[in-house]
Amino acid sequence: MLKALTALAYPRLCIETGRALGHKGAVTPGACVIELENVAYSYGDGALLTQVSLTLAPGSFHFLTGPSGAGKTTLLKLCYGALHPTTGNTLFFGEDVSRMSRDAVANLRRRVGVVHQDCSFLDHLSVADNIRLPLSVAGRQAEEAREDLAELMAWVGLTERAQALPPELSGGERQRAALARAVILSPDVLLADEPTGNVDWEMSQRLLRLLVELNRMGKTVLIATHDLSLIRAAKTQVQARVLRIVGGQVQQAGADL
C-alpha cells in the first residue's frame, strides 16, 4: 500500500484532468487563490472571529491551528464560501464571493477541494461512487474518467474498499476517501479540516505525505489541525506557514513550531 501512495502515477492524472476540465470563469490572473479581507464572523452570540485577514498564494502550504472551539472549522468554511462573513470580504480567485451568484460560487468551488472534519458522504453510494461524485457534478462522464478513478483509488490505498459503503469504512479510510474526493477534479487549492483527526500516527504520516505530494504538484494547501506533531513532521518536508487563531484573530505562529 505504501508503494501505491508514493507511486508517481498521480501527477499524470492531475495534469490530464486539469486540461480536460478546462476551468471556466474569468479570474484575475496572478490573484491569490483565496483571500479573506478583515473578516468577522459570529454564529449569533458574540463574535467568534473578529478581524481576520488571510491570503493563500498559489502553491503555498499553510497550517491553521488553535484550541478546540477557536474557530478553525468556521474559518475554513468562510474560505470555501459555505459561510458568509458578518463583515469583510471573501475573495475566490480574486472575485468577491458576496457579489457572485450561488451557481457561480458552486462552479468555483469545484476548484477548491475540501476535506470536511466529519468527512460526510452519500451513505447509500459506494466509496468509488462517492469519490467520483465531483465528476458527475461537473458534468463529466464516468466512463472517460474510469482510469483516473482507479489510479486515484490506488493512490489513497482504497482499491479494495471501492465497493464498500461509507459507513463500513474505518476513520482513516473515510479520511482518505474524503481526500480522494477532494482532489479528483484536480482543484487549485485543498482545504483539509483535521485530516488526521482520528487516525494513528502512521496513518497520519501517510496522509501528510499525500498532502505534501499535492503541494509539490503546485496545489495550494491549507490544513486545520491541533496536532502539533503533524506540523513538526510537515516542516521537515515542505515550507509551511503556521497560523494560529487566538482571541478571534489569526496570528503567525512562533518559531517554536
Binding site: 459555505a82 451557481d103 458552486a106 462552479n107 468551488r109 469545484r110 475540501v114 460526510s120 452519500l122 457534478v137
Partner: peptide, 16 residues
C-alpha cells in the same frame, strides 16, 4: 439535508 450539504461541498449547482 445531509445529501444536499455533501453535493454543495463538491460544487453542485442548485439546478443539478
Amino acid at each position: 439535508a445531509q445529501v444536499i450539504a455533501v453535493l454543495r461541498l463538491v460544487g453542485a449547482t442548485d439546478r443539478y
